[in-house]
Structure formats: C-alpha cells, structure tokens
Computed example of a mutant assay.
Amino acid sequence: PESMTDRSYRAQILVLTYPLIGNYGVPSAKERDEYGLPKHFEWTEGISVSGLVVGELCESPSHWHQTQTLSKWMENQGVPGISGIDTRALTKKIRENGSILGRIVHSLPSPHSDYALVDPNIRNLVAECSVKEPVVYNETGSPRICAIDCGLKLNQIRCFVARGARVELVPWNYDLNSNNFDGLFISNGPGDPIMCQQTVDQIQKCLEQSNKPIFGICLGHQLLSTAIGCKTYKMKYGNRGHNLPCTHHGTGRCF
C-alpha cells in the first residue's frame, strides 16, 4: 500500500519483482497514528499508480491487519493490474532501456488496433496531485515548516511533527511569504521538473528575500537546483547508491 499510494508514482505502471505479491492483503485506510495520519498509506486519496504488474498474486492473504485483498482494493478504485508476468525479465528490459511507455491490455492488438501510448510526462502531474488549499499540522508546534506539496509522502509530515515542528502544507504554486515560516521544504513528486516553473519562481523569490534554510527531496531537490540555475535531465538509471557509488572523503568509505 505504501508504494501504490506514493504520488511520486502517479500515472506510472508499477512493476514489482518480488515473486509473491498480496499475501499480506491491504489494511484499513481508517486506521490512524498518533498524529491523525493514515497509518499504512502514503497519501489520503487512495491509489496513485495507474497500473500494477506482478509475477504471482495471492488471493488468500493472511495477516491480522488485512481488511481486503490487493485485487479487490484495486478493483474498487478502478486501477488495472496483471499477474503471471516474468517481472524480473521485464525489469531487465526496463533497466537497459530506461523508463519506457507501456499499457495493460486484455489481448494482443490486431494490425488495425489503435493502441497509442501516451507520455504522462507531458502533463503537469504535480498540479494534478498537489493539495488545492493549505493544510496545517501541529498548529502550535515549532519551528514553523512550510512544505510545498509536489506529491509529498505522509511520513515526511510524520517525521516533522514527531520532532515538534508545525507543518503548513501548501499547493505547488502557492504564493510564499518567508515571514510566515522558519524553514522551507520542497517535497518529492512525479513528472518532469520543467513543468513546475511556478514552484521554481516561488523558490527563487524566497532565496532573494531571506536566508532561511531550504531543502528538498527528490523532485524538490531538482526544483531547488533549477531555481539556482542548474539544468536537469532524466538519467537512464535511477541515481541510487548501487548504480553510482560515492566515496566519503573523510574516511575513504564507499557507499
């Protein structure tokens, strides 16, 4: 449920390589943590992915938290999935070719079928999934963190609030005023950062008007980099430690 409700995967087909999927089932979305946030999901509005590909699907889950099967959860939310796929072979193709366009269909296309592939990156996915109005968590907390919602995970709010912070979650194109916060956080999210020029403009305004700390995660870091003049491009392989190792200069240790 965490990956499937992660808005960074919006409009993407998620491929899972673990052999058996769904054996834990899906827990209740009504279960909340001590901060009032959904306990087992990364956002409040259901499934974010556009499709799911698995090797083997379990239809008889066994877990004390589960309230429904994975397939029933997806069916209720109108999200297609497919099983019986060699997902590790598929992952090797994706790894060698980079992220590729695809779709899930019921049968092989005939020569005259119209199975056009639509690139989700031409849409402003951040605008689609961002909150529409500001939301405040831990009203009396400190320091005051302004979080730009580009597709944020609920666990990020949880981490802030657990440390006593007040978090104001604002839309991706919100008119920022640096007098209203002690630090600016730019969240992760889906799609191409070039689509978020309004966010970049707001970050640049904050950089010019104050010296308050700013940090970003994933897409948020790309937007912060864009705001100071950097250019971004999509890498063939995701930049994770096992693909592009880095060395700590102080110790010589490689990560």
Rank of each mutant, 00 (worst) to 15 (best):
E139Q: 14
N179A: 13
N211T: 14
E96H: 09
T199W: 07
R10D: 09
N239R: 01
R103S: 07
S110W: 03
V131A: 02
P109I: 11
K153N: 08
V131C: 14
E96K: 10
C246D: 04
L57P: 13
P193F: 00
G250I: 06
N177Y: 14
C230L: 06
V126H: 04
L169M: 07
R103G: 00
S113W: 11
G141C: 04
V54N: 02
V131P: 04
S107K: 04
T232R: 10
V105N: 08
T226E: 03
P61K: 10
P190T: 06
F255E: 12
P134C: 10
H112F: 02
G51Y: 06
S142A: 15
G51A: 10
C58G: 00
T226C: 14
R7W: 08
N97P: 13
F255C: 08
D114C: 13
N243R: 10
D33L: 12
R7T: 00
F215V: 11
V54Y: 11
H112R: 07
P193W: 05
A147C: 03
R88K: 13
G46W: 02
C159K: 06
D114Y: 15
T232N: 06
L169F: 05
H106I: 11
V136M: 12
N124Y: 07
T87D: 04
I82S: 04
T251N: 12
N155P: 13
V79H: 08
R10E: 01
L37V: 01
L184C: 02
G78N: 04
V161C: 09
G191A: 00
H249R: 15
Y18H: 15
I21D: 00
N188K: 06
G220K: 00
C254H: 12
I94G: 09
I148C: 05
Q66H: 15
H112P: 04
P120W: 05
N211I: 14
P19G: 07
V161I: 11
G84S: 03
L176T: 12
S130T: 12
R32S: 12
R7F: 00
I82T: 05
E168L: 12
S210L: 09
R144A: 01
G241I: 15
I47G: 01
